[in-house]
């Protein structure tokens, strides 16, 4: 952990973080937020500039709540979108607030709920509902040397069809935590916390190389719909593109908001890529299969 000088303004004027294409202004009087940034955001540009796409404040509740079960309140662009959370979730609240900001406001891109990794110029989009195992697979691929674009959003540029990187800490839950800690012994992880659904979670610091390449979009090469199944043999099977298009549309936060432009961005990406369903349990096996499928 290293101390970041601009963070001295975190609890007063706030700081600006460059995260992918976004400038995020963050202000917080909660020590946990500062500790979180010092743990997993050390490689991100942090300045005291004021301009921002998103203005986020994570502030403690005043009064007796400061001492008894302290809470963290989220304020985004002057609005409180959620109820307060326990203060020990304040670091994660920053990630959740970013998810909300991007999903609800970043309409320059078609935003799809998916992890995206890249190797040798070809991006693999891993799309699926929460719990399907996409973040675990994404984290394992990243630890194996793939570039992290995002573990949460595929941001499709409707004009170029390219995927814009949004590398951030990777969220891991329950059994995935020990699996990834084993695969990444030198990795940096936040302390374990319990989320509001009762799941244990951590965030894994993204690789420096991925953060440095945050300005370099990637060309989509494969779309994969993964599903982790205990003891399952790896099955990577092509699916008709029309089905892939339907599934991506359902996982998109805003394609319909963008109208025909949003639909055509997804339809075009599907047309230019190979689409698969993936059932897996063995991470090493699936990493090898994805690498060879990608280079076919």
């Amino acid at each position: 952990m290293r101390s970041l000088e601009p963070l001295s303004q975190l609890d007063t004027a706030g700081v600006q973080l460059s995260i992918g294409p976004f400038r995020v202004r963050l202000r917080s009087d909660i020590v946990g937020v500062r500790t979180y940034l010092e743990t997993v955001y050390t490689d991100f540009p942090i300045t005291s500039e004021t301009a921002a796409h998103f203005d986020i404040a994570i502030v403690s509740t005043a009064g007796w709540r400061q001492w008894m079960r302290p809470q963290a309140n989220l304020v985004v662009n002057g609005v409180r979108p959620f109820l307060p959370l326990p203060e020990d979730l304040s670091g994660a609240l920053f990630e959740w607030s970013l998810n909300w900001c991007v999903g609800d406001h970043a309409h320059r891109w078609v935003a799809i709920h998916a992890a995206v990794v890249e190797r040798d110029g070809q991006a693999v989009v891993l799309s699926g509902v929460s719990g399907a195992g996409k973040s675990t697979l994404c984290a394992a691929l990243v630890v194996a040397g793939w570039r992290l674009l995002s573990d949460e959003f595929a941001l499709v540029d409707p004009q170029s069809g390219l995927l814009s990187p949004l590398p951030r800490p990777v969220s891991l839950k329950n059994q995935s935590i020990s699996i990834l800690k084993q695969r990444n012994p030198s990795g940096v992880f936040t302390p374990e916390r319990i989320d509001i659904e009762g799941a244990t979670f951590v965030h894994m610091k993204p690789p420096l190389a991925s953060v440095r390449q945050a300005g370099e979009p990637a060309r989509p090469g494969m779309i994969v719909f993964p599903r982790w199944t205990r003891d399952a043999a790896t099955r990577l099977e092509p699916i008709p593109k029309a089905y892939a298009l339907m599934r991506l549309a359902h996982q998109s936060f805003n394609y319909n908001y963008l109208g025909v432009r949003g639909y055509e961005a997804i339809a075009g990406m599907v047309g230019r890529t190979d689409c698969y369903t993936l059932e897996y349990s063995d991470l090493d096996d699936v990493i090898g299969r994805l690498a060879s499928a990608r280079t076919r």
């Binding site: 593109k241 029309a242 298009l245 319909n256 109208g259 025909v260 639909y263």
Partner: peptide, 23 residues
């Protein structure tokens, strides 16, 4: 907006009025 890919006979269609995609 209708889309058909060479790997299937099915069509995807986007209805701009509803914002929905149908197969």
């Amino acid at each position: 907006v209708w889309t058909r890919y060479p790997d299937s006979e099915d069509w995807a269609v986007f209805n701009p009025q509803s914002g929905d995609v149908h197969l």
